[in-house]
Amino acid sequence: MRVLVAVKRVVDYNVKVRVKADGTGVDLANVKMSMNPFDEIACEEAVRLKEAGIATEVVAVCCGAAACQETLRSAMAMGADRGVLVESDADLQPLAVAKLLQAVANKEAPQLVLLGKQAIDDDSNQVGQMLASLMGWPQATFASKVVLGGGVATVTREIDGGLETLELKLPAVVTSDLRLNEPRYATLPNIMKAKKKPLGILKPSDLGVDVSPRLATLTVAEPPRRAAGVRVPDVKQLVDKLRNEAKVLP
């Protein structure tokens, strides 16, 4: 069976972003970009399914500017068989991405689509659920374990109170949480091999998808800064300050 994995190119998680002085967004000039960490986890899971003989082909999909080819090469260096770039310079919001992925899924007919639970730039946590909804498929978000067999996916999810296990009819959508696996580092030979793997490029118009944004960003601002704190020399003074200065203890 074929597995599709959606990977997004985002600002690297180690970068502390700065809001632009004119309030139009965050400054992305000369900032390190990487694959969204949750998507690395999704990609790792897909590759493991292939190594286990359950998946026959892993196809990585990315929607965005031409530079996303790099992200797809990273996915192929991890072990994805080929890549599909839906190329667009537009501001692709989650609904648009979900529609693009729907169109790709309709072409590729996967049994499973793996995504990250959340892109760490927009922090939306939407695309997987939207895709499942548009396809009319079941979903398991925030997955920490995925087992496939007998036409079903058995998925353990991290929910607010603990863990939940769902059985989904395939085809299905699964979004990864942090503890699903630990993604591998691509080896140099695999990075070289990835350069020769097929990478198809489509445009939103080829897929008949209108990607116009639905949300207009009016301003982007810095969050309020916390006032500088103080060091306290010992526990006694800490408790005294919490009681008498901050008044958060009786």
Partner: peptide, 23 residues
């Protein structure tokens, strides 16, 4: 915006063909 709401809201929004506004 709990695991319950995050799981459900985008499914509703997609079918209504509207954006979802998170968090």
């Amino acid at each position: 915006a709990t695991s319950f709401g995050k799981n459900l809201a985008p499914r509703v929004a997609a079918r209504l063909d509207v954006a979802q506004i998170s968090d």
